[in-house]
Amino acid sequence: MGTPDFSVPVLQALVDAGHDVVASYSQPPRRAGRGKALKPSPVQARAEALGITVRTPVSLRDAEAQAEFAGFGADIAVVAAYGLILPRAVLDAPARGCLNVHASLLPRWRGAAPIQRAILGGDADTGVCIMQMEAGLDTGPVLLRDATPVDGKTAGALTDELSAMGARLMVAVLADLAGYPPVPQPEDGVTYAAKIDKAEARLDFSQSAAVVERQVRGFNPPGAWFEIAGERVRVLAADLDRHPGEGRDRAMEHASEQADGPGLRRGDGVVLDEFLTIACADGAIRPTLLQRAGRGVMTAGELLRGFAIPAGTQL
């Protein structure tokens, strides 16, 4: 039971390990592309390619859907970023219950967006837990876990790494269920990974440079952004400049002189030099990979050659 790209290696690992996957559940196809044609989820596409029976219910709350699920007679349901709530009748249907691949070190970051929240929260480490599912939100006992450093990784890179880790851990657990007894989660250290709001991807230069740089990594893909002249520019990578020096003061002074009305803030979001170093509340960031709407990814130098953003500009 899974939907996005994150879930595909888990499905493939189950098949490669010789398990009999009696069915694959995924969220319904969504309209995408210019023609708005219905597009199956990555899990549905892979399951169909593997010849696995696929079901894409809108909900699992009605009795008919629950009866069909139970009718597959599964020993275990493996869940990985499925995206639908599993009612008690579904949780209880498989003979050995439901096991979830959760991309955090529980009880930290229960919920919808654990990978992004770990980056945005400045966590040193994150990882994967194989969890026995119960009615609560990611509250079930953990059978196996592994960790990895966040270490400057983007959300995209961390998603790929944790997906592979989750596939490996799930196969290990299924090979020896008796060897991985469920351990209740500790009551201390619980945090919740709220669903990402698109507005959060707007870079907030009133924060410290360290926080802004985490925004850049945490929202890639699709990319955090700033706005200039009514155009959104995505920032896909950036370096920290903790001590921007005298250039900051000169750029602030220039920005203040160029202000046209009270809307300009002196300080945060001011471009400090010809390299597109941008002032934050504490320190500065220097974008290294950017993307304008409808254009390819480019370096800061490539962007500035065709799109002037002079020092003193307020973003």
Results as ranks from 00 to 15, higher is better:
F219W: 14
P141R: 14
D75K: 08
R110S: 10
S208L: 08
G269Y: 05
R168M: 01
K36A: 13
L276W: 12
I196Q: 06
A224I: 11
G267H: 01
A284T: 03
E48S: 07
G35Q: 07
G294Q: 14
L11V: 03
R265G: 08
F226G: 11
L50I: 06
D138P: 01
A93D: 07
R110L: 06
P182Y: 03
Y180S: 11
S206P: 13
A237N: 07
A199S: 10
I115T: 15
P287C: 10
D20L: 05
W109S: 09
A284V: 01
D273T: 02
E134F: 05
E227D: 11
A80G: 02
R31I: 03
M131W: 09
M252S: 05
D273H: 02
P9I: 08
G218L: 15
R214L: 08
A293K: 09
R242W: 10
C98R: 03
E274I: 08
D151P: 03
G301N: 07
T313G: 06
G73P: 12
F72C: 10
P87S: 15
T53Y: 11
R96L: 07
E302M: 07
R292T: 08
A308S: 14
V235I: 09
G294M: 12
R248A: 10
V297Q: 13
T148D: 09
A49K: 06
G247T: 06
A77R: 01
G152V: 04
G140H: 09
A95R: 15
F307A: 12
D268N: 10
Q185M: 09
A194Q: 15
D146H: 15
T299G: 07
R248F: 02
G247A: 11
I196K: 04
P244K: 04
I285P: 00
L14D: 00
L38P: 05
R202A: 08
F307V: 06
A77E: 14
A37Q: 07
G301L: 00
L14P: 00
V78A: 08
P186C: 11
G71M: 15
F219Q: 15
I130D: 00
E161S: 13
H102C: 04
A251N: 04
V216E: 02
R88E: 08
L86M: 14
L304V: 07
P149H: 10
S256G: 14
R168K: 13
P40T: 12
L174A: 08
A193D: 12
V8T: 10
A308Y: 05
P28V: 01
A229V: 03
S59Y: 10
P186F: 14
V21F: 09
P262M: 05
R108H: 12
A193S: 14
R248V: 03
V128I: 13
P221K: 15
G296I: 05
G189I: 08
Q132R: 15
A224N: 11
P141D: 14
R34A: 12
R232W: 07
G306V: 09
G152N: 11
V270K: 00
M133N: 10
V8S: 06
P181G: 11
L84P: 02
R265Y: 15
D268E: 13
G122D: 12
L106K: 11
L169S: 04
N220Y: 13
S206D: 13
L158H: 14
V15E: 00
D16F: 02
E134G: 05
V183F: 06
